Simulated assay, not measured.
Amino acid sequence: MTELKFDAQGLIPCVVQDFYTNEVLTVAYMNKESLEATLATKKMTFYSRSRQELWRKGETSGNTQELVELLADCDQDSLVAKVIKAGPACHTGSESCFTKAVFKSADQQNFSVEDLYKLVLDRKENPQEKSYTSYLFAKGNEKILKKIGEEATEVVIGAMKESKEETTYEIADLIYHLLVLMAYNKITPAEILAELSKRQVVDKKVKQETLQ
């Protein structure tokens, strides 16, 4: 705290990032009081420049942000907070405040499981007549589960053949159908990562106890 450099108004910018996906959620300002409150409660608390008062994220909306990690840059004059969010980060209802595209290279395309999940979820909420994904949602849980069983079997067959190409292809099919199942049951990738993270912590604890 003593090494951080606040500006003339006693503020320091803080970039808030999703702990699981690394998506940038918002940029806000903190003063010493709001930073102390954040560290004490592990709930993101900022300083409103327009209202000139502290505000805890989600105090009225319920969309809180739990602090996991706080980093300062090399000059100690800006922060990055990695958080676990409960609900959208933006007051508009968007998951992130950064949704307006200014520039995007046609040569480099980003792709993630999160992006695919969002596309799958859109096919659920906005069905399209010729969409296979929308077709699966229309058929329901039983059809989705049947496809997962089929794809899992094909992964096993590909692996038994020791064919990297075939196994890769079938794993991609399986992951896609798992994402459909997740969207159908309102399970997010972040919740899966959170569950895996818990297991990693337990595994480390077991290893430590074994070494002792």
Rank of each mutant, 00 (worst) to 15 (best):
M1N: 13
T2M: 03
T2A: 10
E3K: 14
K5N: 13
D7Y: 08
Q9T: 05
L11H: 04
L11E: 08
P13L: 08
V16I: 15
Q17R: 15
D18G: 11
F19Y: 15
F19L: 04
Y20T: 06
T21Y: 05
N22H: 14
T26E: 09
Y29C: 05
Y29M: 10
M30I: 05
M30E: 01
K32A: 13
S34K: 00
S34G: 03
E36H: 13
A37N: 13
A37V: 06
T38W: 00
T41Y: 06
T45E: 03
S48W: 03
R49E: 09
S50Y: 04
E53Y: 01
E53L: 06
L54K: 10
W55Q: 07
W55R: 05
R56K: 14
E59I: 01
S61L: 09
S61Y: 10
G62C: 04
Q65A: 09
L67N: 10
L67W: 03
E69M: 09
Q76V: 04
Q76F: 13
D77W: 06
L79G: 06
L79M: 10
I84Y: 04
K85M: 10
P88A: 14
H91M: 05
S94W: 08
S96K: 01
C97E: 10
K100C: 03
A101D: 08
A101H: 03
F103D: 05
F103N: 06
A106H: 05
A106N: 10
D107A: 06
N110F: 12
F111C: 07
E114V: 11
D115M: 13
L119A: 14
V120D: 10
R123P: 00
E125R: 15
N126I: 04
P127W: 10
Y132E: 14
Y132W: 11
Y132G: 00
T133H: 04
S134W: 11
L136W: 02
L136Q: 15
F137Q: 14
K139H: 07
K139P: 00
E142D: 15
I144A: 04
L145C: 14
K146C: 02
K147G: 03
G149W: 06
E150T: 11
E151D: 14
E151Q: 12
T153F: 06
E154G: 07
V155W: 01
V155E: 05
V156C: 01
I157A: 11
I157H: 13
G158K: 02
A159V: 00
K161Y: 00
K161L: 06
E162V: 08
E162D: 11
K164R: 09
E165F: 06
E165N: 07
T168I: 01
T168A: 14
T168K: 08
E170V: 03
E170F: 01
A172Q: 08
D173W: 09
L174D: 06
Y176P: 00
Y176H: 15
V180S: 04
L181H: 12
M182W: 07
A183D: 11
Y184T: 05
N185Q: 15
I187M: 12
P189S: 01
E191Y: 02
E191V: 03
A194F: 04
L196R: 15
S197W: 02
V202I: 14
K205C: 00
V206Q: 08
T210H: 06
T210Y: 11
L211F: 01
Q212N: 13
Q212C: 00
